[in-house]
Design a protein around this nucleic acid. Structure first.
Lengths: 203, 203
DNA sequence: AAATTAATTCTATATTTATAATATTACTTT
DNA sequence: AAAGTAATATTATAAATATAGAATTAATTT
């Protein structure tokens, strides 16, 4: 079974060379022989043969034998198909399948946690402190209400400074509390796709 | 002014590398710092920086400074724009602009013509014979009618064997003649774009 | 059968490039 | 001001690849 990434790389590699792009342009006009393409591009026939084989592997062209000629033709459908694939919203997320996308978070947690999982020190850098907060947030269930006492109990598993943790959770919008200060609950995280030009809301 | 080919090559080159594709996939989820990407991809930060600069040159990503972080974000519009460009029917012909697409024909003509432009010998290979015929065909205007005598007069500029040339013109569909054999005329060539899977009609 | 032709394969070479270690730059925290 | 941090630039190196000459293959013509 082949990787999504490998397939795309083969396709883009095939098009990432000037003479191969020119061959695509020439074959878009009409099917042509290796000899004709070599003459127009002013490169050796073995070079053209090499390029055509790469284009063929990417599914962009194919040859038809005619006497001792090989007449190559463009698969316009392959280009169009890939263009649509790029536009398809499932393609980009598919590129990161099987990748360890939480590797950075784990590294930060490892740096600031001791063997028991308790916080050794609060990171000065906000970006890293947020990693810690999000990690601890997992202890709280969505839809549940927690008394301040209960919240402190849970936070105490990570640090004696429960006040800082509690306040930070609220300040960064991870948790909310009822009016006077009775009950706390975890804020639903809305999965927000990045919108071009917008500042990153997740930072 | 930059070439159409160069722009496309830069774009495809940017995407023709596994780690760069993965970066695209990761940035599609959310904007991220160089450090984060390096950690997830398990490559050096300088390597990621290098990749991001290539992606930036292709207009695929851009950075926003935040403290001493560079938060890179994907330009989803660039991907979509290129996909549409590929689908656009003007793009492929644009790749061959300024190229000597008749180079092969000229080479064939040079081989089989003498200094006066007369045919030294008829090429055995049909592909090359057609080049000769198409060249001579230019002597006839579209929409005009020519008597057989007049046709022979014109063909005689190229070869004494006017009978073979005349018959070949008709056989290959370049010219037609009226019923009994009186008048000849040049057949309008319909510019026929190649259709996938179809045998090439121009051969 | 021998010669010719187009294409491909093999081989070698020069160029490009992905990677990372090191040095430098820009910014932040103490 | 000094120390710390992230990113980039510089440099070096190993791997990938565009190119073409030579050898080979497959088909056609003489």
């Amino acid at each position: 079974m082949e990787n999504q990434v490998d397939e795309l790389v083969r396709f883009f590699k095939a098009l990432a060379e000037p003479n191969r792009l020119r061959i695509i342009g020439l074959l878009a006009q009409k099917p042509q022989s290796v000899e004709q393409l070599a003459s127009i591009l002013r490169v050796g026939e073995s070079t053209v043969s090499h390029h055509l084989s790469k284009l063929g592997e990417a599914g962009l062209v194919s040859a038809r034998a005619e006497g001792y000629y090989s007449i190559y033709a463009l698969h316009t459908g392959a280009l169009a198909g890939m263009a649509k694939k790029i536009l398809h919203e499932e393609t980009l997320p598919g590129l990161v399948l099987g990748m360890d996308v939480d590797s950075y978070d784990r590294k930060v947690l490892a740096t600031f946690s001791d063997a028991n999982g308790r916080i050794k020190a609060f990171p000065v850098q906000e970006k890293k402190f947020l990693v810690i907060l999000r990690h601890i947030l997992e202890e709280f269930e969505s839809g549940m209400k927690y008394s301040e006492k209960r919240v402190n109990q849970i936070l105490a598993r990570y640090s004696a400074d429960t006040a800082t943790l509690r306040r930070s959770m609220v300040e960064h919008g991870f948790m909310e509390r009822e009016g006077g200060g009775g009950n706390y609950w975890r804020v639903e995280k809305k999965t927000q796709p990045h919108i071009e030009g917008e500042p990153d809301p997740a930072r």
